[in-house]
Amino acid sequence: MEMKATEQNRRRFFDYLFTLFIVVSLNFALPRLMPGDPFLYLSGDHGEEIARFSTDQIDAYRHQYGLDKPWPAQYAASLFALLRGDLGYSIYYNKEVSTILLNRLPWTLLLVLSAVFFSTVIGCLLGSLSASFRGKALDRLLYPLMIAVAEIPAFLLGLMLLFFLAAGLRLFPLSGAMTHFAGTAGFWHTFVDIAHHAFLPVLTLTMVRTGAMYLLARNAMTTVLARDYVRTARAKGLSTARILARHSLRNAMVPIVTRVFLSLGGLVGGAILVENVFAYPGLGRLMRESVLVHDYPMIQGIFLLVTGAVLSANFLADCIYRRLDPRIGLSTEVQP
């Protein structure tokens, strides 16, 4: 039995390794599939200056960054560099990819993790509440409200918040992650300042995600509450809160946990638009920009980071999933 378990774990580990390899290869290929050249600038955004490079200059740069080599050679070089932990040097930003990522990552993490936390907590609470009061006034009020909030595209919601709360009521700053050039104000002030700036983006992401979590929790809870053992518990006279806490939540957790971890990948996508609305200096903005300018090493670096994060999140989801419902682990082994 134990032997089998370790062997299975090893197999799963190799599965993840294989996925990682495929993804790394795709990361290499995808940006290069895009038509266009990182050094070719013919047009600018409205009113924006561009530097024109001559053919000589472009060739010189392509050589400097090894882009004149055939694809297999570039691929091998990038794989070896990756094994050494070297993500390369950004063509557009003129800095090590890893440094840029490290500088940006905390900001995105701040937004995404806060949003995941708040949305999960609020969504689950409201969802369970709605499920236990199903069909009552509270549920009837919450349900359409949450659906409506969940369905408003994040960027539009963000713009709305920006306009009403930041521009109209002037409650929040318009953009950025902190006040610049304000002098040294001490740790506490900086903290408040950062929270103040992060509030609207986090609120936007939270509101958008809460709807989905709410629906999921409500759905799961309803299903669980309709089960025999819950009815038995009810018949025994246990209170709703107790039933919720003891019996239902644990069983409803499986899809919720799966969803929380699955949603991490999507959040970065959603964050792209929201970070742009609030001019927030996270990975989303970086990603949009580097795709726009075809900065291959940078795109690869971001893809890899996001991929790695999601892969490990999935792995975690898998493990938790097994702990919550231990029968699953056994069943896969029993299967021929």
């Binding site: 907590v121 609020i122 609470l125 509440l129 409650l171 006040t179 300042d193 103040h196 939270t206």
Partner: peptide, 24 residues
């Protein structure tokens, strides 16, 4: 009771520091 507790929790979670910066 449960409901009001939840409401309070939600409100508490949602209310991050909202002090205005004065160092401008």
């Amino acid at each position: 009771l449960l409901f009001s507790l939840l409401l309070f929790l939600v409100a508490a979670c949602d209310r991050e520091p909202s002090e205005r910066p004065k160092a401008q």
